[in-house]
Simulated assay, not measured.
Amino acid sequence: MADHNDFGKEAEEKAVRHLKSSGYEILAQNYYYRKAEIDILAFKNNTLIVVEVKARKNAYFGNPEQAVNKKKIRLLMEAVNNYIDLNDLDAEVRFDIIAILRQKEGFYVNHIEDAFYFF
């Protein structure tokens, strides 16, 4: 596996550990629907949380969370709607980003709750 794939997998594992330590129940990882992928689906306080994990080895091209664009948001919406329909869920939905940045002393994890909204 390429180094960037290993780094992305490691970042997702760090995000899952962060969520679990914060009391989230992990429902699914790498949920695919058509061309969309949801990195993590979690549940807490009767809320379904859609988590997009973005990681960077440095901030040279900006912070990781800046890479979530309108197209990605639209794809996440389609995928979560499919997940809700398939699982017959009745819960609030929240969209979070977990941005992970590698630093000399380790990794910086920034959990951004309610990162964006969809109407």
Rank of each mutant, 00 (worst) to 15 (best):
V68I: 09
F107E: 01
H4C: 13
D6L: 10
F119T: 13
K44S: 13
R94K: 12
E10F: 07
T47Y: 01
K70G: 03
K54L: 03
D85G: 13
A11H: 14
N30I: 00
E92C: 14
E92D: 02
E10W: 05
N63G: 15
D3K: 14
R102N: 15
L76G: 01
Y31E: 10
Q66F: 12
N30S: 04
H4T: 07
F116L: 01
K44R: 09
F61I: 13
A67N: 15
R74Q: 12
A59N: 06
I40T: 00
R17I: 01
G106K: 00
A67S: 12
R17S: 01
K9A: 03
A79R: 10
G106N: 04
V93F: 13
A59T: 10
A36G: 14
E25S: 12
Y108W: 10
N81R: 02
N87T: 00
L19I: 00
H4Q: 00
K71D: 14
L86R: 11
H18T: 10
Y31A: 14
I73G: 07
I49A: 13
Q66G: 08
N58L: 11
N110R: 12
A99C: 06
L89W: 02
V16I: 04
F119M: 15
K14Q: 04
A11K: 10
I100S: 00
Y83G: 03
D6C: 06
Y33D: 12
K54D: 10
N58C: 08
D96L: 11
M77T: 12
L41T: 06
D114C: 01
I98S: 04
K54C: 10
Y60N: 14
I97N: 07
V50H: 00
E10S: 11
Y33F: 03
L101K: 05
I38M: 12
K71L: 13
A42Q: 03
K20M: 02
Q103A: 09
K14H: 03
S21F: 08
P64R: 05
I26H: 11
A11W: 04
Q103S: 15
N46E: 04
K14E: 02
Y24D: 00
Y31M: 09
